[in-house]
Amino acid sequence: MKENVFIVHHSEIIRKGLSLILQEYFKMEITQLSSAKDLSSFSAISGSTLILILEAQADLNTKAIDLLKKNNDVYLVGFYGETSEEHFDKIFDYQLNHYSSAIQIQKLIQVIRQSGSKSKNSLQDNGELTTREKDVIKLIALGLSNKEIADKLFISIHTVISHRKNITEKLGIKSISGLTVYAIMNNLLDIQDINPEELI
């Protein structure tokens, strides 16, 4: 995934300083902005990992950030003027301040990268089905409709449909009878639970 770093601070010394420290170790695209207002003109970015280092006590332009979050993995880093943690704001994933060492700043990127690759893995899950997806397969195999599955698992129909889509992507099986065979082969279901004449 493409990585974009934004450093938003009214002080040029801080912008350039942070940028130099990061570029010493990481080859990444860094955009320097003097005000969060300018973030609005980047709302077209999508499918990237965005690391926004923001001046914590300034106006954050949450509207632009929310837009970016829709199509990107966004990490918010608060940059504080003092060491005091009293100001630490919940909206930030990480924090830095004037006195953070170069190592602390660079480590931040590593932490973000690791968490990024982890969340990507959990998405693909090595093709393994989640417990919830297994529940859904079982009910599909028993012949329930999307609506009935939603009612039974206390989830929305929309969620059921998205589970089904993930299941098909992971297993490469689309038809109800194909999923039933999969469920029985993997002991999610006993052959006695279904009417083989009717379903398979």
Partner: peptide, 18 residues
């Protein structure tokens, strides 16, 4: 489409899951 889906399911069951 329905007939094609079943055949591709059959192949995937054998190649990937059996």
């Amino acid at each position: 489409t329905n007939v094609e889906v079943k055949l591709s399911d059959l192949e995937n069951l054998i190649i990937r899951h059996l």
